[in-house]
Amino acid sequence: MFKKVKPNGFSLIEILFVLTIFMLLIRITLFPIGKLLDNQQERNFFRELQTTIYTVQMAAITSNENSTLSFTSESITMKSANQQPIHMNYPKNLHFKEAQDETFKFHASTGHINKFKTVTLYGKGYDYQIIFQIGKGRFRIAKQN
């Protein structure tokens, strides 16, 4: 007399279960991506900083006028003769926390730097030291835990 009805779809609980698993998988894969993006942003910042320092040094040599590089709490500023100042903002996860701003001068015609000093940029996972060596305007960037 009565026919049994066969279900042709999924129940609400089955759909919610599948969606929960799907959201968990998405969350697991997206969590490490944010950290990777921060690390890549730091690497790009330091590559750009190296290029800019070399550019300011070369501008001092070619224009035969002093150039300056300043570290402030907001940004890094490069000034060379007859050019607009170049401002580089820090990435969101790097901070310069020194008591006073640091300014370095590249001497005209030689490109030598006026003082040796270590500038530290503090990050979430790592701290970075930009070590300026006296003499020919050499510098290096060291990553520390």
Rank of each mutant, 00 (worst) to 15 (best):
N82K: 08
N82V: 05
N82D: 06
Q83V: 05
Q83L: 12
Q84T: 08
P85M: 11
I86E: 01
I86F: 03
H87A: 11
M88C: 07
M88K: 11
N89P: 00
N89F: 02
N89E: 07
Y90E: 01
Y90T: 02
K92S: 10
N93E: 08
H95V: 05
F96Y: 15
E98W: 06
A99W: 01
Q100Y: 14
Q100N: 15
D101E: 15
D101V: 09
D101Y: 03
E102Y: 06
E102D: 06
E102A: 12
T103K: 09
T103C: 03
T103N: 04
T103A: 06
F104V: 05
K105E: 12
K105C: 09
F106S: 01
F106W: 00
F106P: 00
F106E: 01
H107A: 14
H107T: 12
H107Y: 10
H107F: 12
H107W: 06
H107K: 13
A108M: 10
A108K: 13
A108E: 06
A108D: 02
S109A: 14
T110K: 04
T110F: 02
H112C: 08
H112M: 12
I113E: 00
I113C: 04
N114G: 04
N114M: 10
N114D: 15
N114R: 06
K115P: 00
K115Y: 08
K115D: 08
F116V: 07
K117W: 03
T118L: 06
T118G: 04
T118N: 11
T118F: 03
V119I: 15
V119R: 02
T120I: 15
L121R: 01
L121H: 04
Y122P: 00
Y122Q: 14
G123K: 03
G123T: 10
G123Q: 06
K124T: 11
K124S: 15
K124P: 00
G125Y: 10
Y126P: 00
Y126N: 14
D127F: 01
D127Q: 12
Y128F: 12
Q129I: 04
Q129H: 13
I130P: 00
I131A: 05
F132K: 00
F132M: 10
Q133R: 11
Q133M: 11
Q133P: 00
Q133N: 09
I134T: 03
I134P: 00
G135V: 06
K136C: 01
K136F: 05
K136V: 03
G137D: 03
G137R: 01
G137I: 01
